[in-house]
Design a binder for these strands. Structure first.
Lengths: 79, 79
DNA sequence: ACTCAATGTAAAATATATATAACATCATGT
DNA sequence: ACATGATGTTATATATATTTTACATTGAGT
């Protein structure tokens, strides 16, 4: 499971992790963990983040059928 | 947060809760809880379920900006 | 050189999702 | 009437997400 949160945050006038967290009701540590793919967020959190950026959930978070094992971060990380 | 899981399950040749659970790697109790909206699943589970039905996550799970409080079940439940 | 904002990270605590086991109801088929 | 499969439901346990607190690093600005 990869995501574009960090990229979208940069595109949104360099919004900070703390600011993003504040807007979606999460701490900056949680934002950092999600960006790094340390765990997959709840569906509710995914919706809140996607909505903030005006995207669909599947545009922000990318999922692959058999891909639960690794801990990638951004989609450009995939080899 | 509402969802169409139960409906999609019926449309899929009356697939049973247990069978759906088996296919996405969840127990039938968890499927029942998700259908009833007792909690919002993890994003990973949402992707697995949506993928099984050939839908996008936002086509299966419906989210409303301010709507975290209630515990609706299906979208036809909304007043 | 100093400060400060942004980020990384980690341990411990809390909240929530999910599993397991058990029992109940209801419908259908025999 | 009985058996069986599908579902509802609940209590307890476990896994995982998220918060809180704390400390370290790095880069920009002064």
């Amino acid at each position: 499971m990869t995501n574009e949160v960090r990229l979208l945050r940069f595109l949104a006038q360099d919004m900070t992790q703390a600011e993003l967290g504040r807007r979606v009701g999460l701490t900056r540590q949680t934002i950092a963990a999600i960006e790094q793919g340390r765990y997959s967020p709840s569906l509710d959190v995914a919706f809140r983040i996607a909505h903030l950026f005006g995207k669909r959930v599947d545009e922000v978070f990318h999922w692959q059928p058999g891909g639960d094992q690794g801990t990638q971060t951004t989609s450009s990380d995939i080899s």
